[in-house]
Nucleic acid binder design. Sequence first.
RNA 1: GGGCCCGUGGUGCAGCCUGGUUAGCACGUCGGCCUGUCAAGCCGGAGGUCGCGGGUUCAAAUCCCGUCGGGCCCGCCA
Length: 637
Amino acid sequence: MLKSHPCGGLTGKEIGNQVVLCGWVQRKRDHGGVTFIDLRDRSGIVQVVFDPRECGQEVATLAREVGSEWVLKVSGVVHRRPPGTENPRLATGEIEVRAQEATVLNPASPLPFPVRDDVKGVDEILRLKYRYLDLRRPAMRQALELRHRFTKAVRDFMDQQGFWEVETPILWKHTPEGAREFLVPSRLHPGRFFVLPQSPQIAKQLLMVAGVEKYFQIARCLRDEDPRADRQPEFTQIDVEMSFVTADDIYELVEGLLSYALKVAAGRDIPTPFLKMSYQEAMTRYGSDKPDIRFGLLVEDVTDILKESSFRAFSDTVREGGIIRGLFVPGLETLGRKDLAELTELTKRAGAKGLATIPIGDRQQESLVARFLTEKEKEALASRFGSERPGWILLVADQADRVEEAVGLLRLKLARHRKLVPERCSQELAFLWIVDRPLLEWDAREERYVPLHHPFTSPFPEDIPLLEEGVRMLETGRGEKKGSPDHPLRRVRAYAYDIVLNGYEIGGGSIRIHDRSLQELVFRAIELPREEAKRKFGFLLEAFEYGAPPHGGIALGLDRILAVLCDAEQTDPDSGLPYLNIREVIAFPKTSTMADPLTGAPTPVDEKVLKEQHITLVPEVWAKVQQEAGGIGESNE
RNA sequence: GGGCCCGUGGUGCAGCCUGGUUAGCACGUCGGCCUGUCAAGCCGGAGGUCGCGGGUUCAAAUCCCGUCGGGCCCGCCA
């Protein structure tokens, strides 16, 4: 090694010791005589003092000539800083290194943007183009380090629990259901394609049939869907599958895993077991299938109170099968006219017709709705929300799904507006299991029931009779109409679970079907003909015929967990809604248009390469590629 | 596929609504001064076809249309 110590690791213990440091120039303070250089490596920063009386004129001159991010090798002696010059903001602020010699290992060009955490708002595309500079910032370096420590802890824990990490193929088979997949043309099999796996789901189930019993993998998943702030075309899952288990075993394992990894990697103590909440309760009380339970602001249903209201928007909605739900915000002064307008805007975003704002206490005249309500109705509302103090009741009346979404969004925005959650999202970690989701949902466009999770998810054992009844109705055309909200198939619960952290879905899984007749029943429920099932999943179904053990598992979204831990939450300035930017915890992420500004990918390829892969571009695309070719060539030099 | 928002020296922002001197500020950068700073300080300089194209106008960073790039969202993500 060219260096003897890490910059950030020097302490008072090294005082008097000769050290050799290598690192980057964070900052230089040139006083004409003495020059200070903050030297940074991945461990941190230490102040190096170049005093011509100690290091000689030549070295002092060299120190004055360096610029930001130059790479230096410095040898010197560790000294306690003179009294009064300590820097409490620096971990190494008690000491400094008095340089004796210095070498420039490499100079650096002026920077395209400052490599500093305290400069906010640098254009993200610029940061991505120079990702190697951006990653030098302490915050980014810490994210990389945390990611390493976390995955290391995951591997240690899973190993202790008897799990084997097994790698699964990256070149996989296309399956038409689920996420759109990235295609990989097969050169040796013209006209055929591999796909990149959207997850190792089927492979891990095959490993269960193979008798591995306890499998895990820190697995890359690839999905060719439109990205979002918390979705990348490639992302990482902690993928787990176990044989001979119930859901309780999975809960216990995951709670143990997360509490261990958080303790070891981040020094965080989190209480276990995690809270469990039914999907039903999440939707009705929180307006979300991934509730943030760090704050209250619970949703109340007031349909019964207002169904006869003289305010037509209420009574008409209820008559048409809609519902009325809302929230209570204490304090009339907390929401001004502008706030109320913004909240109304937000409800419209959910497709709801509007937001009724009812003041409790005075200021009755300011509310259009309040004038239509009787004293009795207002009293009933106030008592429903348990509001003894003045405040605002915010109500949405519409069809159930829109109301749920709208009040869910209101809850999130209000929590930020009223500062009910800490500024930094890592400060409080609220884990939650969501259970008892429906197995199937009605797809109005396809006119059939589709799995909410995937077709191998087991129904809740008690609900199997319901599933049988539903399939009977479906196939005989008798009983409840297909698609009706009361259809038995909609009431079948899945033996599945989702895990939520601070309002973000960080994972999900299920107990799988290992019984062939049950599997066929589910295929009938989703109207997947036997032939088609065979074509799509034939190899898995065949595997299940050779002694498949009961099994189940889960996949945890590593990027999202780390994004919460790294405070990569931002607030959308337009809507006031929070979102997670997982790009902050990925070393080389893609933009939200699925491009990589650093390498320029995706790029066109030579015609020769296309030909080898038996690919011909459609004429319009070919023309466009030709036209752009010059520009792309230039920008990549 | 659709909606909303953003684009001004290397970086971050102001100016735009209400068109009108040399487009302003901070950081960085370059030169000079300075021996204890740590966002060092002081003095001086360079650096902008206001993303691009078109239109309206005597006059466009500013208004209008288009386009490109970016961000967030809806659809999509079993």
